[in-house]
């Protein structure tokens, strides 16, 4: 890295609804999607590059994503393969606190983390939903997530029977 060049240049991104956000290169590289994009134009191009349009992420969600990547920009990020089947693990209290948001925001965050390819954020946000499912009955899950019950009594009985063999008693 050149001495007279800032070690972590500014990068701008634009949300789907046209709001511009400024962040740093180091933070934005946590997104696999943007990393691929930047690698494609070459490092020298970064400073001359205009704002990166992100047509699948709205401003509310992008703000949340940027908060997360800026906090984690110096941490080593696992690849999606490494994290795929990771189970219970220590969760950074900052992350735990960060994920305290309503479900709407959480769904948007999950889709954004998936689109931007940020494996650790995708893992954290999907795990958050999995934790909400924990120890709930199907009816509780339906009301929590506002899902319509589309089974007939006969159908549900048949499915319950199928499940019997691996229910923990």
């Amino acid at each position: 890295m050149d001495i007279d060049r800032p070690s972590d240049p500014q990068v701008s991104v634009v949300s789907s609804d046209g709001t511009m956000f400024h962040t740093t290169l180091k933070s934005i590289l946590l997104s696999g999607t943007i990393k691929d994009m930047i690698e494609h134009i070459g490092e020298g191009g970064v400073e001359n590059m205009g704002a990166i349009p992100l047509q699948n992420v709205d401003s509310k969600t992008l703000e949340i994503v940027i908060k997360w990547i800026e906090h984690h920009k110096d941490n080593i990020q696992p690849t999606s393969e490494e994290i795929k089947d990771k189970t219970a693990d220590f969760i950074d209290p900052w992350d735990e606190n960060f994920l305290e948001m309503d479900l709407d925001k959480l769904y948007n965050l999950i889709t954004a983390a998936n689109y931007l390819n940020i494996p650790q954020l995708l893992w954290l946000s999907t795990r958050k939903i999995a934790m909400l499912i924990k120890n709930r009955t199907p009816q509780e899950i339906r009301s929590l997530f506002n899902i319509e019950d589309d089974w007939t009594p006969q159908e549900i009985e048949a499915v319950q029977k199928e499940n019997q063999w691996c229910e923990e008693k």
């Binding site: 999907t126 499912i133 120890n135 899902i147 589309d150 229910e167 923990e168």
Partner: peptide
């Protein structure tokens, strides 16, 4: 949510939670 993201979520559940989820909807 797209199927791949639902899989992403439910694959993080325990065996009994997977069973409950399977009864939520078709």
């Amino acid at each position: 949510l797209p199927e791949e993201l639902i899989i992403e979520i439910i694959s993080k559940c325990s065996s009994s939670d997977i069973l409950s989820s399977s009864l939520v909807s078709k």
